[in-house]
Every structure is written in structure tokens, then in C-alpha cells.
Design a protein around this nucleic acid. Structure first.
Lengths: 335, 335
DNA sequence: ATTTGTCATGTAAACGTTTACATTTATCAA
DNA sequence: TTGATAAATGTAAACGTTTACATGACAAAT
């Protein structure tokens, strides 16, 4: 790879001048600019971003870190796309780390990204008291949390009104006459699930239905957990008439379990999923789901990160987007 | 962030010695090692990977680039997971770029990754004559192609036997009596679709069914294309009895179109998709599909990249994995 | 006592940039 | 002519590492 020195020699100027041309410094004569640009083209010179980042943190070639809990979850894929969309338009590169709900792995990525001198980080914390992320914030490294916030410290957040989203889903089921509604949740260390649980409870309360702890199942947030928990639910002596499932993958896993038992949805059991998918309509049956605007969340987070980088002192922001209940065919009225 | 110098001062040795301790150089006394390690811990020192990469390319802190065509496609998500799995175990960081089948964006990521001094690249080329990737290979930057190869140049490749995969799918349909089989393909610039097309033709040939060009539709590889092409197919005067769809997203899009028209699968039309998904069983109806081992492909590619980095001169490898036809309920026999 | 060798450590150059500061040259006012 | 000012360019330090080479201390061999 050719470097500044090569270009400088080729156009018979100093490397400082070449650097100035690259950075559009006005203090260089038109003549020299043209000469240097010709050399740059001739040698196919590309600035070395590693050297740029080592030398100065406020260069124009920014590097963003993005840490997500589970890339298999289409919701987070949407988030990634949103972040990338904004980054691409603004000439950032994005480094992605997927920690698969593994706290150690999250910590590793935090360390790596930090020592890669990233200019900013977008992260969905594994829990609300994440010390690693708190540290970054304290060090004044620009951080935006997505999907989940931090409880101990003030930080930029983009999330969704999880409580209301869950409330509306459960309210809908209760309105249709359901009383025994199982909740397949993710781990309650994760803030989102605490909030969804709270919405679940509030809806029950509103309808005067007593809360039954034995209907709540919290494990991991993957396909397999959804499958296994649903199996258990279906075996219950007094089977619930409806299932509320906490995320995309849990829903898909639960569907597999239900289909494996040849149980009819919604005639024998209703189901609502948190997280919509483009192909929800093609599921058997078309799935009623709580839609989160993943792409928009990603884009917004990137935008906020950009602003935070430009203006580190600025007041922390807390953006809460709305969910939408997509009514389809996986729920029905019962007497 | 503390640096070598700070650690050196803290433990009253030179920075060279500290560096040696970090890199486990045996030529340093036990006593000093302990002293330095204590300082490292006290100051929470983390090596700066940017400086490491600038200084030497054969350090232990490697950075891999991964460029994929479409992160919305669950197949590529599996690939990402496979790559990451291997990378994580071997202490690499992975930088992901998603180019969304946009050639310009692919080029941009190629440039960025190169100027980030990546140690190696895993990429699914947008087409077989990708000059950008050819250049990297010529510059002796370790590259492994995944899902798709390069025609003009010898390079490491991990892919799947697309021709045979498609052949088996079409053969299955023909065996069930189908003769008019539509093919929803991606763009024929992409090598995979050329190969799948070839398998499609060979199967027709085997059964003596004449090839009908008007049944082949090639556009993009996204959900929307699948939806729109399927709409067209359903409007055909003499409607095909079966659809073979070229990838995950095309299949899901096509399903939506079919369901929107209230057409029964498989009674009124059969469908086989290239690419299986974990939740294929929960689709309406459970989808018959050609499974590709995405995770294994990613893992294998990372492994090959690792070997190529260690041994750049080694002979290029061409790994072709097998597909598997997953028989479910979306196809039926016709007379 | 001198030489040789080994081990531990230090010194300084290098990686490719950016940038504060210094230098050169030209322009113009007095 | 001199000095001041401005414009264009160059010089060199810095970012945080790694590493070839130099140095120094000490023990063993002569």
C-alpha cells in the first residue's frame, strides 16, 4: 500500500502538504493541490485509517461500535440495518459485536472496541447495572443505549414503551375473554422483560384478574427456550387459553412446539408475540404481534451518537418510541 | 486510557520491558514480570489495538473483515454467527459490512477494511468478476470467499453445491408430476443463481420437460422482489403448478403474495424454497426447503482464513458442502 | 585477571498520520 | 532600502506500540 511519503515523493512536496490536500486545508495553492491529487490518483493512495485514528481522535474517518445481544433475532437485525444506514450516509464504519446474551462476551467486545479507539458505541446492555458500559460513559466515551437503558447512570437511550406494548397485548386478550394467559419471558435481569412483565400485570389488574405466578416462565431469549417453555405450558393440567411470548425467537420456538403437538391456533390456544416480523402473515396462522420499529430505533441511535460525538457535553436524551399491536389471526374470542 | 509509558513509570522499568511482559516474552525475569503485572492491574492497562495494528501486522490481536450481501437474510446471519464463533474462540475481532447487494457499498467496505489494516477478509462477492476483491487477493491480503466464488482468479472458497441442491428440489417436483415450475431467482450476475438455474435446467432435461424461459424471473434477492414476482406468477394465464424460489427472502415474499390471494398451498400451488429456516415448520404450510449449512460455512471460512493468514503461500482451497432437501408440507403430487 | 557467554534490561527507530511551529518567498508600505 | 505582513510550504514531534540492537551485570571458563 502506498503511503503519504510515496505520494509526497511522487509530487515532489512534503508529506505535510499532501496531508493538507487530503484534509482540504485551504492553505495550499491551487497548483499544488492539482499536482498532489494527480499523484494520489496515480498511486491509488488511500489514507491509512489505523494511523489516522492513532494520531487524532477527531479525524473524519470515524469508527462506530455496535454491540447487540442476539443477531439471530430479526429485531436486532433491523436495528443493525438502521445504524448502518445512517453510518453509511455519514461515512462511518461500523464494527459489530454479537454477544449472544453472554455477559463475558459482551465484556470482551467492550474491551476490544475501546482499544480499537472507537469514536462511539451503540449497545443494548445485558442488564441495567452494566458496569462495563457505565465505565465507558464515565470516561466520556460517547455511548447510546438501545432497546434497554441503564439504571445507575444518565445515558442516551433509544427504546420502546415496553410496558404499554405488553399492556395493550394482554388487554386485547382479556377483552376477548382470556383469563389464563401464560407469559414466556426472557430473563428478568434484562430491563425490557421487567417492563413487559409490568405491562402484563397492569392489564390483569385493570380487568380484575388475579396474577398467577405459575403462568410466568423466564429463561433465555432464544428459539430453543421458546420451544421448551411452550412444551411445558401445553402439558399444564389446566392449560392456559392464551400465550404472550416475550420476543421474536421465543414466539417462533413456541409455535414449533404447538404445531408439533398438533394443537390448533387460535381455536385451542391463542398467541401474541412481542416483535413483529415481515413474514408474520405467512405463519400458521398469521401472527398477532407487537411491532417495534427496529430500523428507526437503530437509525435514531446512530443519529444521537453522531450528535453526542460532536457535542459531548450536551444533555442526555431519552427517546421512547411507540409499539403497535398488529392484529392478525392467532387470537380468538372465548367464552 | 493508560498506556505503556504509564505502566513503565509505575513499575520503574522501560516500556520495552512492559511490552515484553504483555507479549509473554520469556526473556524477562520472574520478579519483573510480577512487578509489571501488578502495575498493569493497578492501572487497568489495556493495550491499544490501533497502535498495535499500526506497528506490526503479525501481532496477536487480529482484526477480520466480513462483508455480506444482505443481513436480513437469515442464511447470512447464520454465516455471521459461524464466523464469529470461530473468531471469538481465537481472539479475533470481526468487523462486519452489509452491502445490501449494492455494488458501490461493497466497494466502499472493501476500501475501508483495507485501510483499517484488517488481517484478513471473508466476503460473499457480488459477482464472479469482482475487481475489488481480485485486487486484494493480488496484494496477498488473505481472502476467503463464501457462498460465491471468483471466476478470474484462484481464491479460497467455501460454498455449497448449488446446482445439485436445485436439481434435487426440481427433481422432487417433477417426480410428483409437476411440469410447469416457475423459478423465482436472484440476479444472474450472482454466481449462486447461475448455478441454481443450471440445476433447474438439468432436472427438467432429465425428465424430458422442455425449458420454458417465460417461467424464469430474476430480479433482486429481497422480500419485496419475491412478493412482486409471485404476484406476477399468480396472474399468469396458465398458472404454474409449482414455484421454486431462489432464497429465503424471496420465499417469504412469495408466501405473502400467495396468502394475500387466498391461494391454498399445496393444493393449488406447490412451493420449494432454497434456504431453510429454523421456523420453516411454523409457516403455513410447513415449508419444503433446501437447507444450506450456513453456520458451518461461516465457521469453516473463518478457519480457512486463519490458516491462510498463518501460511499465505499455501495452495488455495475449494470447499463445497452439501445441501439437504427438507421435505415438509408445501408440495403435493398432481396428475 | 581476562575472556566469553548468558541473561535481563534499556534505547531508539519504525509504523502512517496530523499539526504546531518554523522557514521561505513574495508583496507592499514607508 | 528596509521592515512588516501574508501566503505557501517544510520540519519535526506526537499518537502507542514492537523490536533490532546496544548495554550492563554477572557467572563460568581460560
Amino acid at each position: 500500500m502506498s503511503n503519504l511519503k510515496a505520494v509526497a515523493e511522487h509530487s515532489k512536496v512534503s508529506i505535510a502538504t499532501v496531508s493538507r490536500v487530503i484534509n482540504n486545508d485551504p492553505k495550499v495553492s491551487r497548483e499544488t493541490v492539482l499536482k498532489v491529487q494527480a499523484s494520489i490518483a496515480a498511486l491509488e493512495y488511500k489514507p491509512n485509517r489505523v494511523a489516522q485514528r492513532l494520531r487524532s481522535s477527531n479525524s473524519k474517518t470515524k469508527l462506530l461500535g455496535l454491540i447487540i445481544p442476539d443477531i439471530q433475532n430479526p429485531f436486532f437485525v433491523d436495528v443493525v440495518r438502521g445504524v448502518e444506514d445512517y453510518a453509511y450516509q455519514n461515512n462511518f464504519a461500523v464494527m459489530i459485536g454479537n454477544f449472544g446474551q453472554d455477559e463475558k462476551k459482551e465484556k470482551l467486545y467492550l474491551d476490544i472496541f475501546q482499544s480499537e479507539n472507537i469514536d462511539g458505541l451503540i449497545v443494548a446492555p445485558i442488564h441495567g447495572k452494566d458496569k462495563g458500559i457505565e465505565n465507558l460513559v464515565k470516561k466520556n466515551i460517547p455511548v447510546v443505549c438501545i432497546d434497554r437503558g441503564l439504571t445507575e447512570i444518565d445515558v442516551d437511550v433509544v427504546k420502546v414503551d415496553n410496558e404499554l406494548g405488553a399492556f395493550n397485548a394482554i388487554d386485547h386478550l382479556l377483552n376477548m375473554g382470556h383469563k389464563r394467559i401464560a407469559f414466556i419471558s426472557g430473563n428478568f435481569k434484562i430491563p425490557t422483560y421487567i417492563e413487559r412483565m409490568s405491562g402484563y400485570k397492569k392489564a390483569l389488574e385493570k380487568h380484575g384478574v388475579p396474577f398467577d405466578e405459575s403462568l410466568v416462565f423466564a429463561r433465555n431469549t432464544d428459539y430453543k427456550s421458546g420451544f421448551e417453555i411452550a412444551q411445558k405450558i401445553l402439558e399444564l393440567e389446566q392449560r392456559p387459553t392464551a400465550i404472550f411470548s416475550g420476543n421474536n425467537l421465543l414466539t417462533l420456538g413456541a409455535l414449533e412446539a404447538i404445531h408439533a403437538e398438533n394443537i390448533k391456533i387460535p381455536e385451542e390456544i391463542s398467541i401474541i408475540g412481542f416483535d413483529d416480523m415481515p413474514w408474520s402473515i405467512s405463519l400458521n396462522p398469521p401472527l398477532t404481534a407487537v411491532r417495534q420499529p427496529g430500523f428507526d430505533m437503530g437509525r435514531k441511535a446512530a443519529e444521537m451518537l453522531y450528535e453526542r460525538i460532536a457535542n459531548p457535553g450536551k444533555k442526555k436524551e431519552n427517546v421512547i418510541l411507540k409499539t403497535e399491536l398488529m392484529l392478525r389471526k392467532s387470537t380468538t374470542r372465548i367464552e
